[in-house]
Amino acid sequence: MKTISAIENDELMSLNENLYDEFYIQELEYRLETDPLAMGGILEMFNQDINITQSDCIGYTSCTGENTGGGCGIHLGCDCVIKFW
């Protein structure tokens, strides 16, 4: 069972909290309506079936099956003009 002073303390605490809650201000954020320039996304659209980033081929011209195992990686059938390694 709570003592009277404990109850009084509780009451005082909650009253003070309520009083504090009644006063507040907060600065509102600067309202900038932003529109992302999705250039990366647009460029990605044009990224065709070739993923050059994982290739060690450059300047491939026509496609044959011979190069597939010789360092052209995922460019199945690509004719490597120059290889790196």
Partner: peptide
């Protein structure tokens, strides 16, 4: 990391 265009419309609060 996004380039953006923006308009300042803070008054609409």
């Amino acid at each position: 990391n996004f380039p953006v265009f923006y308009t300042d419309v803070s008054n609409v609060w």
